[in-house]
Design a protein around this nucleic acid. Structure first.
Lengths: 203, 203
DNA sequence: AAGATTTTCGAATCCTGGTTAGAATGTGAG
DNA sequence: CTCACATTCTAACCAGGATTCGAAAATCTT
């Protein structure tokens, strides 16, 4: 506690903790909650299983943190992408940008988000509490996006934006189950999904 | 083996086996693969855990049969619905009918299909082999449906029917994660999903 | 109703991983 | 170089839950 310049841990320690977390995200995103053994996580992290307990209280703690991070990161990422849009971007443009950001992030960038999407409905209840807060706040972003587009008259009149939003997020999230980079380019998927929004929801 | 009029099991025995299978589908659809304990299944079926072994070789055998049945039943159901359509139904009409049938079946009718949808990506590899055949043949139905609609010129020209089909099935399958009968009526969900197809894919 | 066969059960076993204990090793500070 | 503390490991330990083993109970056949 006294040897380092920062908080309460040396940089190397931070990195090991991170390595374990990354490993957990990777294994979790591929094998699912049931199939994720601590020894597998340890192997990927290049460490022995008990070492994990130096950084995390339990297997569930570790899983929960991955789930939380997955929801948190994609939210922050999408927020940033939207915020970086030019001021004259229309509400519909913003939705399309969010679609792009969400798909690329969950499919290509982050094992954390893949893990959180794939296991959201699989982990035991008590592990969903903290992540749920992040998910709720991510939902609000999308709700706001759709409201804005609706107010701007960019959506067809008979559209139920709540159901449409859930269907859209579902179609994107389910892509983690089938999308394969060797079969279909991510660019194509993004484009078709945006088309789905333009035609399916646009006025 | 000699006391009964049929194959190799009395009617009561058949019913008990069925009860266990139903219980497994129910538990699996709610708790997921990891959370499904044989004692829970036994409780729901009104039997002691070891009794399950009289009918199934192992927990995995039981799970596999539920997964297979879930995929099989929804396929048969959708096939029947389509077959019952009047001859002058257009290809697009058939797709909309399939959407209706798929959603109602997985959300309202069959725990088997709910279980198979929710756990498709969670169960260990070796349990996916047999169910995968059913899923493949179910996919073909949808592929054919979209091809027919495309040939009939009912879909917009720049639509990638493979991606659209996967996105559509994804949006419907993901509904098992969020749809709640007390929040939204199934009728509304069906209608909005059909609208999504009409506007999102229609010419 | 007796005997054979099917079905179910209670109790015991076993195995897989998560978890703990305590020793060993590494690392920064003086 | 040595001490104090941080980190990691090896070797148990333990619990949950699947599975097995006869023995009972139910059911069917004659």
């Amino acid at each position: 506690m006294s040897q380092s310049s920062e908080d309460g841990a040396t940089a190397k320690s931070q990195r090991t903790r991170q390595r374990i977390l990354d490993a957990a995200a990777q294994v979790l995103s591929r094998k699912g909650y049931a199939g994720t053994r601590l020894t597998d996580v340890a192997d990927v992290a290049g460490v022995q299983a008990p070492a994990i307990y130096y950084y995390f209280g339990s297997r569930d703690d570790l899983v929960e943190e991955v789930m939380w991070a997955g929801a948190h990161r994609v939210r922050v990422h999408v927020e940033e992408v939207i915020a970086a849009l030019p001021d004259d971007a229309t509400p519909l443009d913003r939705i399309l940008a969010a679609v792009d950001a969400h798909l690329r992030y969950e499919l290509q960038i982050s094992d954390y988000t893949t893990a959180s999407v794939r296991n959201a409905g699989q982990v035991p209840e008590h592990l969903r509490v903290r992540p749920a807060a992040e998910e709720a706040s991510y939902s609000r972003i999308w709700r706001d996006l759709f409201h804005a587009a609706q107010d701007a008259g960019q959506l067809r009149a008979d559209l139920d934006i709540n159901i449409f939003r859930l269907l859209l997020l579902g179609s994107m999230n389910w892509a983690v189950e089938w999308w394969n980079p060797r079969t279909r380019s991510l660019d194509d998927l993004v484009r078709q999904t945006q088309d789905l929004v333009r035609h399916g929801a646009g006025a």
